[in-house]
Write a protein that binds this DNA or RNA. Structure first.
Lengths: 158, 158
DNA sequence: GCCTCATCATTGGTCGCCCCAATGATGGTG
DNA sequence: CACCATCATTGGGGCGACCAATGATGAGGC
């Protein structure tokens, strides 16, 4: 069983640096590396907006579902309740949403999207759409849909 | 333009918590959420081995390419050079690899996989294979291959 | 009506990972 | 020989995922 060719002691796998097959074929690895690239692109796209991915997620949920409790916001976006607190207060300070106690449920806060928040959401959406194109420019639209569909099935299966 | 039905002020999106469409259809979001799930599974699979994902990546590279410099290991696995240092020293202490200066290049270290390291790599491989099955059990083998192929194209395009 | 349990917002903290900057030593290039 | 690239290494920053605990408050069982 010949080991991969190492010319001599001095030449040690130089300049090429391909990814090992064990990683290249490991789904979790490929998924994670792609996520790193995706996050790099989206973070770059959102840089300068004062918002980050979590903020966009919260605004999206509020826009679609209307006023919600923080617990519900956390659940539907996959953000831990603890972290929702920071995001909500930060965006409330910027006037993108309002936080008031639920008159019917003493322990619950109702978070509401403001018009300014809706505007902010739409501007973030545009920036993120560009990032998606940049990320997936090697794929056809059909292939992009396939990726989303397959990964969604993976997510829904747990 | 009717807003999504909110029954009344008291009933605030309770108990259901679907993912907002803006997130569900955003490739970077779906990819990232899947990566979070994948990392949870792999971390759980590796728990108790004393190793983590980075360690497996390094061992894989050494196994496939033979003795390598730390810089090359970092490049082919996507791990920052700074972080390679910690991984190498940790695994050297456990006897899984050896680190010696390159006689031909004074500034370079040559890292070599030991037989114990190879054994460790194989045992980690088994655990990770199980994690992949758990992650992708909702997909057919062909669909799993498709995911890896498409994501690989995304990765290679940058 | 009371007791128990679940849920809520919030605080505080941990840990891993990605990333960057700088440094001293060394090689390679022109 | 001077300059620039590369090496291993140190140190640190920042973010995101996660966990535990707490006081206040609802809901359901009996």
């Amino acid at each position: 069983m010949a080991l991969p060719t190492i010319g001599y002691a001095g030449e040690v796998n130089s300049t090429a640096n391909p990814t090992p097959a064990r990683l290249r074929t490991l789904p979790s690895w490929v998924i994670n590396q792609t996520a790193i690239a995706a996050n790099r692109l989206t973070d770059r796209a959102l840089a300068g907006t004062g918002s980050r991915r979590h903020h966009f997620a919260m605004l999206s949920a509020l826009d679609e579902f209307g006023p919600s409790s923080q617990a519900d916001l956390g659940r539907c976006t996959g953000i831990d309740r603890s972290d929702v607190v920071a995001v909500v207060t930060a965006m409330a300070e910027r006037g993108f949403l309002e936080q008031r106690p639920d008159p019917a449920h003493g322990r619950r806060n109702i978070v509401t999207l403001t018009p300014a928040g809706k505007d902010h959401l739409e501007s973030l959406s545009v920036l993120l759409a560009d990032a998606q194109n940049e990320l997936l420019h090697a794929l056809s639209p059909a292939e992009s849909r396939t990726i989303v569909e397959l990964l969604t099935r993976v997510l829904d299966s747990r």
